[in-house]
Design a protein around this nucleic acid. Structure first.
Lengths: 167, 167
DNA sequence: ACCTGAACACCGTTCAAGT
DNA sequence: ACCTGAACACCGTTCAAGT
């Protein structure tokens, strides 16, 4: 019986991500975790990029958002904060999400969660840009916070603050 | 006489970037361009990340922004558009800039250009997040535009549109 | 001061061959 | 159908040794 599958691969990938960071999520390490050769992975997954895409899909799969209240500003703000929190929940998850969204290999649900309560596409795009941009610029501080060290960040405002400016 | 220096390295780096993309900017390729061994580079530059930082510094060095008019909304919008245009001017420059700003290894001038005309830090941070985020999410389309192919983009709005929402 | 050569410890991807 | 073994073509970084 083969316990190895696309879904299991992304599970192990997220595990490696949380434990060692994005740089250490390599095809060889994932294969190792399965006690299998690297080349074996390519039977289950097209390439590394699609594995990363599956990881992002899984990362946001469990997130359940509240139903729309009718006040779109409040709904958008609430959901954006949830998405941001998810990107902070796991080490390097923000960087991973940004890369996957940029290449379009996964994470479509992220946009849908915002689009569902957004009045128009421009607003959706602005929120998405703010999410990815702020997370990216806060990478240093986020990593520092995850460990417990102090660091001078490129961005000084919290996500809430910049979000309040827009919605 | 040695024509090799930190400044020349970043010049060649940007040349390689424009010609072949970020993935092909490797220490070995840069060294090759100088007819020199890889290890020789490490005399002039700490590591690859600092070379990338120097490249971003050089990318925005020549950009001269207009003097403040007094209308900060117009000033911010104009400068943000200039910065965005610079990130579009060279292949993969947006990705490079995002990565360098995230790691804090260069590109401080980018933030300063906005901060100089911004009423407060939160606004500066919001503009920066919008810049980096929109550029990141538009990576597919930007590359497609650079080549001439059609692609379904993750973001459908232009930078001007999302910017207008904020300022 | 500046550069070479060689090594170390990795990468992603492909592909014939096995079961 | 699923996996191995070996190879290909790369990486960034270090360091003794040369000039």
């Amino acid at each position: 019986m083969s316990t190895i599958s696309r879904d299991e691969l992304s599970r192990i990938g997220l595990q490696l991500l949380a434990a060692h960071g994005l740089a250490d999520v390599s095809m060889r390490r994932v294969a190792n975790e399965f006690q299998v050769t690297v080349s074996a992975l390519y039977w289950h997954v097209k390439d590394k990029q699609s594995l990363l895409g599956a990881m992002v899909d899984r990362l946001f799969a469990d997130l359940d958002v509240d139903a729309p209240t009718g006040n779109w500003r409040a709904d958008i703000a609430a959901r954006a904060k949830q998405l941001y929190a998810t990107m902070l929940s796991t080490r390097d998850a923000a960087e991973l999400t940004a890369s996957v969204l940029a290449l379009g290999t996964g994470g479509q649900r992220v946009r849908e969660i915002i689009a569902e309560v957004s009045p128009n596409d421009v607003t959706t795009d602005a929120i998405m840009a703010l999410l990815i941009g702020h997370a990216t610029l806060n990478q240093q501080r986020m990593q520092a916070e995850a460990i417990g060290v102090e660091v001078s960040p490129a961005t000084t405002s919290t996500f809430r603050q910049v979000l309040d400016l827009l919605v």
